[in-house]
Design a protein around this nucleic acid. Sequence first.
DNA 1: TTGAAAGCGATACCAC
DNA 2: GTGGTATCGCTTTCAA
Lengths: 340, 340
Amino acid sequence: MVMAITLQEIARYVKLSPSTVSKALNDYPRVSDETKSRVIAAARELGYYPMAAARDLRRRKTNRIGFSFGFPNVDIGEFASRLITGVVATAEKAGYNILLYPLTGDQLQKLTSICKTGEVDGLLLMGSEYLVESVALLRREQFPFVVLNRQIDEPDVAFVTADHVTATAEAARHLIDLGHRRIAYIGQAVLGKVHHDRIAGYRQALQAADLAVDEGLVVSASPVPGAGAQLIRQLLARPEPPTAILAIHDPLAIECLQAIQALGLRVPEDVAIVGSDNLRGSQDSRPTLTTIHPPLAEIGRQAMAGLLRRLSDNSLPPTRLVLPARLVIRESTRGRSSPA
Amino acid sequence: MVMAITLQEIARYVKLSPSTVSKALNDYPRVSDETKSRVIAAARELGYYPMAAARDLRRRKTNRIGFSFGFPNVDIGEFASRLITGVVATAEKAGYNILLYPLTGDQLQKLTSICKTGEVDGLLLMGSEYLVESVALLRREQFPFVVLNRQIDEPDVAFVTADHVTATAEAARHLIDLGHRRIAYIGQAVLGKVHHDRIAGYRQALQAADLAVDEGLVVSASPVPGAGAQLIRQLLARPEPPTAILAIHDPLAIECLQAIQALGLRVPEDVAIVGSDNLRGSQDSRPTLTTIHPPLAEIGRQAMAGLLRRLSDNSLPPTRLVLPARLVIRESTRGRSSPA
DNA sequence: TTGAAAGCGATACCAC
DNA sequence: GTGGTATCGCTTTCAA
């Protein structure tokens, strides 16, 4: 890697002091137009780019934002990549770059180090098992951060998420409108708040329709393959089996769907099913899957924008956003139609 | 963000010079064990983490690796995220972090700046429209990099990719073994070398089976939705329509599959179809999709490992790896079976 | 084995 | 409007 040009050399080249050159390049107010253009020309000519480390050290600012996520537990699946896509788009426009922080091992220690090394100016935090402790830590360190896809109670914590409660209620109501009376909810307790939000939405819709909640129909699957299929078999073996299933995310929904079909039942005629997240697979399954679509890229964009706002003026109130999620109705509830 | 502890303060605290403290923390040879442990204890006690910018400046090394990708053209879909997952896993173990570089606008200028700002020690380059120019530029700058998922001719350029030629030949042979004689190839010319590699594999398999290549069956779709369906209709309207399709990637294959079904034909009975990349959707389609599985996470791991090797000793020969891709046979060629 | 001092490359304060 | 100089926090000779 060939030695790069420094600001000093530009200064010598144009016969000006380094400080003036710096000012010219950084568009300071009191530099003559002529000087400015001469310096800029020289910089371009010599192929000058300021060395990041030196600049960061002096400015105490890196123009980098961290994106943290559980790993390999959470890993960079389609879900995270949709978030990142939005994050990157907004960051890019503002001249920021994204540094990936997989949180393995001692997550809290990792976070501490992120705060103290000053490698990034702020952090986007994806829900992990230690979200509560992580939030507490970052708050204590007064490190700028925004939580992705989780709602946080503490009023000074910034977050951007989808409205899981309302979306789930809407999904349940959709099923109720179709005549379903025994609707099961299959969640994953490991998903924490999202899990509870969905249950809340589920209850809300049933109550609004004057339907009693059968607690035996509200279940949690462990996050291992096959757990959903197992639960489906148990649910459908009940004396009064459900006629519809709400699953906490699409892969689980598709696993359920296939388990239902394996039992010789038809979807949606015998059992209807709704997933969540609108992952690619939900369009490709047969029947295609009705699912909740959370605007993940938009969550990423808004979270990034909120973080940038906070960095530019930390007296601004924290960004606390619950974006609407919409229900995408497909064949798994509505009945088959001709392929789209 | 609360002011962090510096090495100076540790030094004062343990009544040693900053240089000694630095050496103790960085595990230098000639520091007494007692001093070392005292310093380490103090650092832990005071919650010291070295400031990244200062360290990077002095060391001329950041322990960061860039991951560049076309954006939004390429964007961070499932494909890129599988690569990144491997990259991150390997980087993490070696104490490196990944910085995302979406290449928008003037890609070559972006690359130049990546080289010269010294923000990262090396670069993983995902194929983009300007891959050839990008490679030339990085070579000229003598910046350490490895190309992902593309084979590069210049012998000193490092890359890690899957064997598209052999994999495509294997897929074609699979179809031939099933009795197919008129096999179409639907690619996307924008994918450059991969596109040509697949065609080469396709020809190779046909020739090996003494089948003539009907050039009318080798087509390229533009990368817009619906382009594949359009081509399918044209191909199937020919006097001698193909009985099997090789598509360059799964989304295109699924689009074709659905277009075939929309014409009232059955897959695989009337037309068989093979995709590539083994994306999630390929398991969920009906029928499920036979597809080529490139070991993307492994490509990411190997590329990262190769880059690290090069950074530790740049006299080592460049990592040039073509990893085997395997054919995953599912219902779209084999015929339906009971759901897995 | 420890310490003093130089310096990495930029920015920012304060004179002029 | 321009320049001198200190400084950001750390590593790294070199001398003791």
